[in-house]
Write a protein that binds this DNA or RNA. Structure first.
Length: 115
DNA sequence: AGAATGACACAGA
DNA sequence: CTCTGTGCCATTC
């Protein structure tokens, strides 16, 4: 019997992460979004932390496919810069045309993008 | 099953 | 505008 009654319940990484993955992957070049904006579209609203946490998980899987460097906090600061190691995150954003203010923060008023 | 953690957000001072 | 404290929701041990 090749009938699988178990129907593989492997949807552990499906639900929350895939949604974050999908949105972040849709961020256009030269634009940035915030964790709160993503969380809001996920329906989790106040679970902005989960978004960052989700990236951490995806980071262990396919980080190259996920432009997480375009995801910043509400302050426009590159919180995940530490995860990239060095100023790679800033370099990437600048390379895409993202501008920073004197405080080293992304100009949210200019590059803020919402899903 | 409960406690602890986490790449934030928001409100108040 | 900046800083501090609290809450959110899901995952992990």
């Amino acid at each position: 019997m090749a009938n699988n009654l178990k129907t593989s319940k492997k949807r552990e990484e499906r639900d929350f992460f895939e949604r974050v993955y999908d949105i972040v992957a849709r961020i256009p070049e030269g634009r940035v979004t915030t964790y709160g904006a993503i969380a809001r579209h996920l329906g989790t609203g106040g679970s902005a932390r989960l978004v960052g946490w989700a990236l951490n998980k995806t980071l262990a899987g396919d980080r190259s496919l996920l432009p997480c460097h375009r995801v910043v906090n509400r302050n426009g600061e590159l919180t995940g810069k530490a995860w990239f190691g060095g100023d790679i995150m800033e370099q990437l954003l600048r390379s895409e045309g993202v501008t920073f203010d004197k405080q080293g923060r992304v100009k949210m008023s200019v590059h803020l993008w919402e899903p």
